[in-house]
Amino acid sequence: MFTVASLFVLATMVLALLRAVRGPTVYDRIVAVNVFGTMTVLLLVLIGFLTDRPEFEDIALLYVLINFVAIIAVLKFELYSSLAGPRAASAEGATEKARDEAADGAGVDGR
């Protein structure tokens, strides 16, 4: 059962990798990295059960957290072109992207 599950996870990893390499947009790549991270977590858990050492799930949990925070950081950077957030972006005269978002009425907060 774990064998079949691992095979499917590996197949999904191939697809995510393909999307990360091919692109074409930034968001394709971000989602691909996110999916790849999730699949890594699943694979770690499966490896733990394949080798009869399910303690490795702790590491998998850590990976989930890191993956989440990293994707948030990437998206924030993509939106504001700065990791400091909306305030710093507006202080420098608002980057083009943040302005576009604000014009659409979709600006997030702190503006």
Binding site: F2, S6, L7, L43, I47, L50, T51
Partner: peptide, 8 residues
């Protein structure tokens, strides 16, 4: 299982 580990 061992074979699967190798494949992974």
């Amino acid at each position: 299982d061992a074979a699967m580990e190798q494949i992974i």
